[in-house]
Design a protein around this nucleic acid. Structure first.
Length: 255
DNA sequence: ATGCCTTGGTACCCAAGA
């Protein structure tokens, strides 16, 4: 009996509610991590009628993360520790069944260099500290979401074009590798080695039909969860729908 | 080399996204 869990940056839950409901009907995952709610309101009741309970951290206009789950999850943390002045809704940590789930919307960081890039790197350091704490306490977890990190050349169509971008700069990739060095595994790469698998395609310049994408939505698993991994895949189909988000879902299965 | 879309908020353009 495996537990399927997905992550999807929907680029406004208001604009994408019907897409999400439709996708859940065809893909009845146990839990769905959602990023970029882009508003304070969350359509809890619509998802409850579809068989999902909600926990979310939202703010006006920007950011926002939610976790939908078939059984009610228990809130552990609604914000990333390490900076009391940080008001951005980008982090949600819950207990679901025997799993610790973490949903993140990691800052974009452009333009780099600059204050936005400093915020991104600071956020990644705070994330590292929180995950190190969970490792130290031997709490198994899986973290998913929009990392806004292109880990390697094979994760984008044109690496040269991304060289100086906040999603691909060397400091960004180093900070991502530091997370992996805590013993975490990029779940997608357990099952797929080749280039050309993406989770985001820009709205502009025909990026989707040309498959000019980047792989920036990820699941990282701590060792005990990695040993239970059955599958991890990207469902590109929703990107081709009318009024699509610019991201598409990534799904993993744990035994 | 640049803009190309899309969204939300406020106001008929702008910030932010990646």
């Amino acid at each position: 009996m495996s537990i399927p869990i997905a992550s999807w940056n929907v680029n406004s839950i208001k604009a994408r509610k019907d897409h999400v409901l439709r996708w859940l009907k065809a893909n009845p995952v146990d839990a769905l991590m959602i990023q970029e709610l882009k508003g304070e309101a969350f359509p809890e009741e619509d998802f409850r009628q579809a068989g999902y309970e909600s926990l979310y951290a939202a703010q006006k206009a920007y950011n926002g993360v939610a976790i939908l789950s078939k059984e009610k999850a228990e809130l552990v943390l609604g914000k990333l520790p390490g900076d009391d002045t940080d008001e951005q809704a980008r982090y949600l940590e819950v207990n679901y069944k025997d799993l610790r789930l973490i949903n993140i919307y990691l800052p974009n960081g452009n333009p780099a260099p600059g204050p936005k890039y400093d915020y991104k790197l600071g956020w990644m350091e705070r994330l590292y500290n929180r995950l190190a704490e969970l490792r130290r306490d031997e709490i198994p977890f899986l973290i998913g979401g929009d990392f806004n990190v292109i880990p390697e050349d094979r994760d984008c169509h044109n690496p040269k074009a991304w060289q100086e971008d906040a999603l691909f700069k060397i400091e960004t990739r180093q900070a991502f590798r530091a997370l992996e060095h805590l013993g975490l595994t990029d779940a997608f790469r357990v099952f797929h080695n080749e280039a050309g698998h993406y989770t985001f395609w820009d709205y502009q310049a025909g990026a989707w039909p040309k498959n000019h994408g980047i792989r920036i939505d990820h699941f990282l698993t701590s060792p005990a969860i990695t040993d239970r991994l059955k599958n991890c895949r990207i469902d590109a189909a929703p990107r081709g729908e009318e009024k699509a988000s610019d991201h598409t879902p990534i799904i993993l299965e744990v035994s």
